[in-house]
Design a protein around this nucleic acid. Structure first.
Lengths: 150, 150
DNA sequence: TTGTAATATATGTAAATACATATTTTAAGT
DNA sequence: ACTTAAAATATGTATTTACATATATTACAA
């Protein structure tokens, strides 16, 4: 369905630029709700899932809170509390960094790895359904988004 | 800058599909922060701004809460409280719908229109800077997003 | 008409978010 | 060494969000 139909927009957008912004925001929400539906079953928020994936991507190299923020999709300042939540669930470890007592080393635990694998498996199983673009189109979409932000 | 650089991703994405999802979420946040910076000056949230724009697009035809939800980018259920906020600021009117005492007619006020015009002017003035794609590219981006969701 | 379901919105509440500020530790300058 | 600034994270707090439930009204069926 076209964007205009989905949000029941009767009159045309002022510019194709404005339409693009709305389209990105709308598509983002579409992704968010799709993902969240599955994440909720695992009792984890989208943000927590994102942080876990970041840590998992580091293998066994720990990251500090600031390094996590750098890698997060939305740079807000409560990464510290997100890590708290993950720590309480036993998915990450957190200890004072050697050589800098201000910073802390955060690492995914083996429990966290097992959990993440399970979640990711469940989510990607569903994502296969919505594989509506071909390889070249995905690449073009990525290129355009990168260029938009440039 | 490429997506990988921006979020300091060292290893490649598992698939171009996964990368696209992350790219859309990242770009959405990029837009959100850019917009919010200006909206805050006007003491209005992104969601409230969105609702005002929806109402403005209707000229003088009022919308019910449910019709507003249909047109919102993210369909959450607190449109009622968003309208409350806008009502408190005098930007919308709200009265019982004739013929259905459950529903209510929400309409943008003239104060709301003046306000919206001011905000939009301020935002679009800045958006001109970041006009990094050409017309055809914007259209292609819109087409790909629509297809992705299909 | 009377009970039951559906509709439209409002409200209660726990959790998450944004933003400012505090705390602790390190760095740098004199 | 001492002062001040910067860095890294934690905490406080008001607002927003998500989700469930409540209230009021309408529609429908027996």
């Amino acid at each position: 369905m076209s964007l205009e139909q989905e949000i029941k927009q009767t009159r045309p957008f002022k510019s194709v630029y404005e339409k693009t912004l709305v389209n990105i925001m709308f598509t983002n929400n579409w992704i968010f709700f799709k993902q969240n539906k599955y994440l909720k079953k695992f009792d984890i928020s989208s943000q927590q899932y994102n942080v876990l994936r970041i840590l998992n991507g580091q293998k066994d190299k720990p990251l500090t809170i600031n390094e996590i923020i750098d890698r997060m999709l939305d740079k807000m300042s409560n990464a510290s509390r997100l890590v708290d939540k993950l720590y309480a669930k036993g998915y990450v470890s957190r200890e004072q960094k050697i050589g800098n007592r201000r910073a802390c080393d955060v690492k995914i635990t083996s429990k966290g790895k097992v959990f993440l694998e399970e979640v990711t498996k469940s989510i990607t199983a569903i994502e296969k359904d919505l594989d509506s673009l071909n390889e070249a189109e995905y690449e073009e979409l990525n290129r355009l988004l990168d260029k938009l932000r440039s």
